[in-house]
Structure formats: structure tokens, C-alpha cells
């Protein structure tokens, strides 16, 4: 009886320490749902497109959401627009130069203004955004939704949690050496970006 009680206390202790530990979420999505969309104003029609080659790792602790840190990477070659001529221009050396700069990277540095309500956490995340080898620090609003034990709903063979990360923000293309000061009458300097990604944290031994 005494041994059973000790074992029970030990199991509860281990379980508690496991729950409290920060989880590492992998944002590589085999389903191709994760996406970053972009929009630029233009005279005839807004230029809008998306990229679905996303990956990265984010560490998130439900007990300490302000300790959030991580990196999200977008493969430039997956940038897509519907018009084939625009697609060619977009990926060419004049615009995104995807051959020379294959990745767009956002890496967190600090988190402020954290508010949690149920499974949803909102925060202002400051990080370093690198596009075409130009790195700028910016602060973006982020909404995180923690879906505990929901990984199996997406991947039946896996057990674990999901973290959905959403963010809408704007940047200036001129700041990142994307045709700075050029063709602004045809393509706006402001780019509206929208990030919707889900990361998974597999739990082994469940």
C-alpha cells in the first residue's frame, strides 16, 4: 500500500514536470496547409499570392507564454501568383531573386503585451526579419492557439499537441531591397503579409 502511494506520487510528480516543460513545435507541414500570403496594391488589380514552403521551430510554454521563441522560414521558390508573367518577375533577380536568396526568415527576439484567454494567447512579438540578405527588426501582433492532444486529429499515427500561429502585418519592400523606390506607381511599396501556420509537438510514449 505504501509502495503504491509512493509510486502514485512519483507518477503525478513526473506528469506535472512534463506538463510544465516548454514544448518545441515543428512547423514543417506535410499537408501543405501552412501558408504565408502577401498583397500589394496595383492600379488594375491587387497583386496577391502566397507561399506554402514553410518550416521552423517554435518553443512555447503554456505556463510562460512570454518565453516564446523560435524561427519561421519561408522558401522563396514557393512564392506563387496566378499570372505567369508576374510569377516570372516575382522570382527574377530584379524582385525576389529566389535563386540567390532562397529563404525568408523571421526569428524572435522578445515577446511583450502577452494576454492569455483559455487556449488563445495574443502577444506582440519582436524579431528579426531577413529578406534578400537585409535584416530588420520589427514587432508584429501574433495570435497563438494551443490545441492540446489535437495532433492525432491531423495525423492519426501521431500523438501530441498543435500550436496555431497567426499574424498580419505590413512591411515596406524598399526596406528589404526589393526594387527600392522603383515602380511605386505600378506596385505599392507596402506589402501586407499574413501568416497562418500550425506546428506540432509529438509526445513520445503516449
Amino acid at each position: 500500500m505504501k509502495n503504491t502511494s509512493i509510486s502514485a506520487i512519483a507518477i503525478i510528480g513526473i506528469a506535472t514536470s512534463l506538463t510544465a516543460a516548454p514544448l518545441e513545435f515543428d512547423f514543417k507541414d506535410p499537408k501543405g496547409v501552412n501558408n504565408a500570403s502577401f498583397k500589394l496594391d496595383a492600379p488594375l488589380e491587387s497583386i496577391s499570392g502566397s507561399a506554402n514552403g514553410l518550416s521552423g521551430m517554435v518553443t512555447f510554454d503554456t505556463e510562460k507564454p512570454a518565453a516564446l521563441k523560435g524561427k519561421i522560414v519561408v522558401e522563396s521558390s514557393t512564392l506563387h501568383v496566378g499570372n505567369p508573367m508576374m510569377q516570372g518577375h516575382l522570382q527574377s533577380d530584379k524582385w525576389m531573386d529566389v535563386a540567390k536568396f532562397p529563404q525568408i526568415i523571421f526569428e524572435t527576439t522578445s515577446v511583450t503585451n502577452v494576454k492569455t484567454e483559455g487556449t488563445v494567447t495574443t502577444a506582440d512579438v519582436t524579431g528579426k526579419l531577413t529578406i534578400k540578405d537585409v535584416t530588420k527588426e520589427l514587432t508584429v501582433p501574433v495570435k497563438l492557439t494551443y490545441l492540446k492532444d489535437k495532433l492525432s486529429a491531423r495525423f492519426p499515427a501521431k500523438q501530441g499537441d498543435l500550436l496555431v500561429l497567426r499574424s498580419d502585418f505590413t512591411i515596406k519592400r524598399g526596406d528589404f531591397n526589393i526594387m527600392p523606390g522603383q515602380m511605386e506607381d505600378k506596385v505599392s511599396d507596402t506589402i501586407t503579409l499574413s501568416l497562418s501556420v500550425a506546428g506540432m509537438a509529438c509526445v513520445t510514449g503516449k
Binding site: V33, L44, S50, N52, G82, L147, L162, R166, S196
Partner: peptide, 30 residues
């Protein structure tokens, strides 16, 4: 279509678990 000619059309879908809206592309001449 009052915009530019396209060779693919974007169709938005929603992932039932994460509720993420994501684009899929239908090839064709528009």
C-alpha cells in the same frame, strides 16, 4: 475577369482541425 490573365485560380480551403484558411490552385486559363 477585370484583372490580369491567369493560368491558375486560387481556391481557399479551411483545415478542419486548425481552422487555418489556405490557398489551393486550380490550373487553367482564366
Amino acid at each position: 475577369n477585370l484583372g490580369w490573365t491567369k493560368t491558375s485560380k486560387t481556391v481557399m480551403q479551411t483545415d478542419p482541425v486548425t481552422e487555418i484558411r489556405y490557398p489551393t490552385y486550380q490550373a487553367g486559363f482564366y
